[in-house]
Design a protein around this nucleic acid. Structure first.
Length: 485
RNA sequence: GCGGCUAUAGCUCAGUUGGUUAGAGCGCCUGACUGUGGAUCAGGAGGUCGUGGGUUCGAGCCCCACUAGCCGCCCCA
């Protein structure tokens, strides 16, 4: 037999049962939090017309779109007319433009589906991956930003995260800062890319890159002085012994806001951006999410469609982000010809899973066995009886596996053991003669016989509803499992 | 797209300056155990050393290309 390549395509993955359980658990938690915020579900096709996607993500984004060649007689032209969706935001904008009359004035939707990018795979980065998006369309109010931040924050907390940072910036603030520093508009992109590397490359690295990207020294010095000022604030706060770490965060944000006002001054666009940030902090305070927020004037984000606030969530042990989003007030306009204000946020499922696995944050119940009870088969003649017993147990709510062959008892027990099934039911000749069934508790090793009607008495400690409820709870340290188990 | 590292049994890895028949642990299968898993013991299966070329009397080892994976850059969820 010829052995073919069995790996999935590059950057794509198969999900075995344990993987799927983890994924469904995370999706379930996120979904329930999103619904608690009044978001409604939406699904869109994997494939979009290529014009729908092209030009929405910037130059780099265009290259990373998975394109689908024309089919049939046009295939040989090598042209593409369809493409796999690159994110969930642009399809949403299309949907809103298409169904504007059927959707509510303020459309709050969540969408958890895969997207595809022809990117190079890396840790936490795949070519097919799930995004968990929430977006609000129809309002320019910063209440939207604050609520999205609170929802994403709640979702992460519900999954057991407590150390994430929600970085917030604003496209208009970036514009204001760069204008005030005297950076010409056509160099804004270059400057932003350089500034974005502040946390990795440090001030020296950024200064060097600014100069390499053709930002004149005078502008660069103004910018660097500002950011060194911010770093100084952070350093000073680190030295103070605060009661709560979040107090430092709040003090820092207040200070940054003040410095931005000062730096941007009367610059109209910039000042309105700073005002947005002020409001976001104010509204986020009401939900308590402000303690997670860190204003970060170096945050850039690559997607071309953002117009206002930009948001990104980070944890220390992951180079990339756990999620990101922002305001995109004129993306819908590209489809509709009339702007609809919008803002959204996306959590990256794969990255959340990478970090949760490494930190062993998944609840133990997740890796539990595929069944509560396995019914053995005594011999060929008793197969029917085993199936009847399985049906009885299933009707009582147990998850029941029937060993499919009349194998040696040892084999059957070994199989149940290897699958971590907690109870094994046996109806052998003796049991049958007495109208009983033997139940062995595989954890304790104890085995007892009871009449068929009382079987469930011996299968204790198993309650599907309790298990599901347990899974939904925030994972505690001693409630966790080994990754990859 | 760029730079570095890696690829040997199902898994984790040894493998000497290039030299007969490539090893270990774990796992798997069989038996000790005619109605019972985990522990122990005995035995067994499983590798064209990622793929393709090259150097050499001889390559798991050296060289080249390709593929896949990891780390960094770029970008991103």
């Amino acid at each position: 037999m010829a052995s073919a390549k069995t790996q999935p395509a590059r950057g794509m993955r198969d999900f075995l049962p344990a993987d799927v359980r983890k994924r469904e658990y995370v999706i379930g938690v996120i979904k329930s939090v999103y619904e608690r915020y009044g978001f409604e579900p939406l699904e869109t096709p994997a494939v979009e017309n290529i014009e729908t996607l092209m030009g929405k993500y910037g130059e780099e984004g265009n290259q990373l779109i998975f394109k689908i060649l024309k089919r049939g007689e046009h295939e040989k032209t090598g042209e593409a007319d369809l493409a796999l969706r690159y994110d969930l935001t642009v399809p949403l904008a299309r949907v809103v433009a298409q169904y504007q009359n059927e959707l509510p004035k303020f459309f709050k939707r969540y969408q958890i589906q895969p997207v595809w990018r022809a990117d190079r795979p890396a840790r936490g980065r795949f070519r097919e991956f799930y995004q968990c998006d929430v977006d609000v369309l129809g309002s320019k109010s910063m209440v939207v930003e604050a609520e999205l931040i609170a929802a994403a924050s709640d979702a992460l907390v519900a999954l057991g995260f407590n150390d994430f940072t929600i970085r917030v910036n604003h496209r208009q603030v970036l514009t204001g800062m760069l204008d005030q520093a005297g950076v010409p508009r056509d160099k804004h992109n270059d400057a932003v890319i350089a500034l974005d590397k502040m946390d990795k490359a440090g001030p020296e690295g950024v200064a060097k890159e600014l100069s390499e990207r053709g930002i004149v020294d005078e502008s660069a010095v103004k910018l660097m002085r500002f950011f060194e000022g911010l770093a100084g604030v952070q350093k000073a706060l680190d030295l103070v012994d605060l009661k709560e770490a979040s107090d430092g965060r709040l003090a820092y944000n207040a200070d940054v806001l003040g410095r931005l006002v000062e730096f941007i001054g009367a610059h109209e666009i910039g000042a309105s951006g700073v005002d947005d940030l002020r409001q976001i902090l104010q509204f986020a305070k009401a939900s308590g999410a402000d303690q997670r927020i860190k204003l970060d004037p170096t945050l850039a984000r690559g997607l071309a469609y953002y117009t206002g606030a930009i948001i990104e969530i980070n944890v220390k042990d992951l180079a990339g982000s756990l999620g990101g989003g922002g305001r995109y007030d004129n993306l819908v306009g590209m489809f509709l010809g009339r702007d609809v204000p919008a803002c959204g946020f996306s959590l990256g499922l794969e990255r959340i899973i990478v970090v949760m696995s490494e930190r062993e944050m998944f609840p133990a119940a997740l890796v539990s066995s595929p069944a509560d009870v396995m019914v053995t088969i005594w011999n060929e003649d008793s197969i029917g009886e085993s199936i009847v017993l399985a049906s009885e147990l299933r009707s009582r709510g147990f998850r029941v596996d029937v060993y499919p062959e009349a194998d040696k008892m040892g084999k059957q027990f070994k199989y149940a053991s290897s699958r971590d099934i907690p109870f094994v039911a046996i109806i052998g000749d003796d049991e049958r003669a007495r109208g009983e069934v033997a139940i062995k508790n595989m954890r304790s090793g104890e085995q007892r016989s009871v009449s068929r009607n009382n079987v469930s008495e011996l299968i204790d400690g198993v309650d599907l509803r309790a298990r599901v409820a347990d899974m939904r709870q925030v994972g505690e340290a001693d409630d966790s499992i080994k990754p990859g188990a």
